[in-house]
Structures are given as structure tokens and as C-alpha cells.
Amino acid sequence: MKLDKDTVGKRYSKALFELSVEKKQLEEVNEQLKELKKIFEEIPDLGHMLTDVRLNLDEKKLLMQQLEKPFEGIVRQFIRVVYDYARMDDLLLMIEDFQHLYYEHHGVVYGKVTTVVPLTENQKKKIEMKLAQLLGYKEAKVSCMIDESLIGGMIVEANHHVIDGSVKAKLNKMRSVLQN
């Protein structure tokens, strides 16, 4: 049975997280993963290149040597395991899942706010405070996205909760009520 990307990402990230906690290297591993994430964001096709069967083994080994070079210990071993199991194209998902576990461990909920216009820093902080309070966390961190189709308002997503306060959602709800 083939596993979907979400399941794979969660399994790998959970194993890495638990090992990091056990070895008391959680902060170090998290910092290294942030650097690894930057590399994969700067070279979006890297995971596919290292997984693709069309690239010959010598080329992949050369790429892997360069990729592994700045990392050590648990993170280097993790990269090798992910490579050996041909899951490099899922690495960003694994890192994101690890970061969710990391934040959860520290009492921080991680979420996303989608608005029509960019939020000011003050607006973002107010949303983070309210979200942390609403979900029972010490702190909240949100990333901001822009979606002009919302017309107005915002959508807040965190910890499997979605609060849709967009004008678009309200109009759709009114349309549905009027049609029935």
C-alpha cells in the first residue's frame, strides 16, 4: 500500500522530533532544519531532482554531497534516510510537520491568515494574541497570505480550525439561504 505525502511527512517528522527530544538536541535540529528549508525554497526542484530516476546515480551523489555538507549529526542522518527511501520530494512537507511539532512542544500554535490586503505588524500581533487565547496556547505565530478573491475580511487557519470571516464566505452563505 502506497502512503500519501501527508502520512509520510508526519511519520518522518515525528520520528525526527522524538529522536531530537530524546538526544536533547531539539533546538539544534530545529535551527538546522530552518537552513535546510531555505535551500529547498531557493531551489524548488531539488527534491524532485534527487528523487527522479532520470538523473543518474553519480549526479545524485554529487548533489547529495553538496546538500549534506553544512549539516551534521541527526539532521545529516535524516537527510540520508530520506534520500535512501526516495522521499526527497517530500522533504519540505516533513520539515513543516517537524516545525508544527516543535511549536506545539513549546506551547505555540502555528497558523495562517489570509486577507485581501497586507496586514500591518500591529494587526498581525493582535490576531496572534487572540488566536493563542482562543485555542489555549501561550503564543501564536501566523504567516500571512493575500487572496484578493475574498473581497474583504479574513480567513484564519490553525491547528485544524478554520475561522472564515471573509466577505466572500458571507456572500456565499447568503446566496445559499436565498436559493433555499
Score class of each variant (00 low, 15 high):
residue 49 M to V: 14
residue 112 K to G: 06
residue 87 R to A: 02
residue 173 K to R: 15
residue 29 V to G: 01
residue 124 K to C: 04
residue 83 Y to A: 01
residue 52 D to P: 02
residue 2 K to F: 07
residue 38 K to R: 15
residue 178 L to I: 10
residue 53 V to A: 15
residue 133 Q to N: 10
residue 3 L to R: 14
residue 37 K to D: 12
residue 121 E to T: 15
residue 26 L to T: 06
residue 127 I to S: 01
residue 128 E to M: 05
residue 169 A to T: 07
residue 111 G to K: 02
residue 147 D to S: 07
residue 96 E to K: 12
residue 113 V to C: 07
residue 88 M to F: 06
residue 100 H to R: 15
residue 157 E to L: 08
residue 131 L to N: 05
residue 179 Q to P: 03
residue 155 I to A: 00
residue 140 A to W: 00
residue 36 L to S: 05
residue 151 I to K: 08
residue 10 K to R: 14
residue 58 D to K: 11
residue 66 Q to S: 13
residue 47 G to D: 08
residue 74 I to Q: 02
residue 176 S to D: 10
residue 98 F to N: 01
residue 52 D to T: 09
residue 146 I to L: 12
residue 54 R to D: 12
residue 140 A to L: 01
residue 135 L to G: 05
residue 15 A to T: 08
residue 129 M to Q: 13
residue 68 E to W: 05
residue 76 R to T: 07
residue 10 K to G: 09
residue 52 D to K: 07
residue 110 Y to D: 09
residue 92 L to M: 10
residue 84 D to N: 14
residue 169 A to K: 07
residue 148 E to Q: 14
residue 112 K to L: 11
residue 5 K to L: 06
residue 138 K to R: 12
residue 111 G to M: 05
residue 94 M to F: 04
residue 20 S to H: 02
residue 48 H to Y: 13
residue 5 K to Y: 04
residue 58 D to I: 06
residue 85 Y to I: 03
residue 105 H to P: 04
residue 11 R to I: 13
residue 19 L to G: 02
residue 127 I to F: 01
residue 63 L to I: 14
residue 88 M to E: 02
residue 41 E to K: 13
residue 132 A to D: 01
residue 35 E to A: 15
residue 22 E to Q: 13
residue 15 A to G: 04
residue 110 Y to L: 15
residue 140 A to T: 01
residue 136 G to Q: 01
residue 26 L to K: 03
residue 28 E to S: 09
residue 156 V to E: 00
residue 63 L to P: 07
residue 82 V to K: 01
residue 142 V to Y: 05
residue 10 K to Q: 14
residue 39 I to V: 15
residue 62 L to F: 08
residue 57 L to V: 11
residue 178 L to T: 02
residue 47 G to T: 08
residue 175 R to D: 07
residue 86 A to W: 14
residue 9 G to F: 00
residue 121 E to N: 14
residue 40 F to L: 09
residue 29 V to L: 03
residue 32 Q to A: 12
residue 46 L to T: 05
residue 114 T to C: 06
residue 55 L to P: 01
residue 110 Y to K: 14
residue 128 E to I: 05
residue 134 L to T: 13
residue 43 I to Q: 11
residue 98 F to M: 04
residue 63 L to W: 09
residue 137 Y to F: 14
residue 2 K to N: 13
residue 114 T to D: 05
residue 141 K to E: 13
residue 1 M to L: 09
residue 152 G to E: 06
residue 32 Q to L: 08
